[in-house]
């Protein structure tokens, strides 16, 4: 929830360190990556290439598994879909998800 003008420090000053985590850059996204699990071979290419560390991994097993995306930070650049060797990631317009 964004704060009103009376509840933020003056002058655009950020008054404590490490606050960028609270800044959800995912709102910039125009295209949303969708995972087709049946095609994914968990090669970790998407994880390696993602510039925003927005690929969610389950590393509890012997080999890490790709399980989805962190939409709070994914800006929809589409690099993951581009590098995916099995075409398991599809970029869909955000307009299709407005209801969510």
């Amino acid at each position: 929830m964004l704060k009103g003008w009376k509840d933020i420090p003056i002058g655009g000053i950020i008054d404590e360190p490490g606050k960028s985590r609270e800044y959800k850059t995912g709102t910039w996204r125009v295209l949303r990556p969708i995972l087709h699990e049946d095609k994914c071979v968990h090669c970790m290419f998407c994880w390696l290439y993602c510039p925003d560390m927005a690929i969610v991994i389950d590393s509890s097993g012997q080999k890490p598994k790709m399980v989805g995306f962190n939409y709070d930070y994914c800006k929809g650049c589409g690099l993951c879909a581009d590098v995916c060797p099995t075409k398991a990631i599809e970029m869909r317009p955000e307009t299709e998800f407005i209801e969510e």
Partner: peptide, 23 residues
């Protein structure tokens, strides 16, 4: 108490900072 001056301030907060200047 480390602080940041002059951060990128886009459509989500810039307007609120201008309202503070009016005040």
């Amino acid at each position: 108490k480390p602080v940041t001056y002059g951060p990128l301030d886009l459509y989500d907060y810039y307007f609120e900072h201008k309202r503070q200047q009016v005040e």
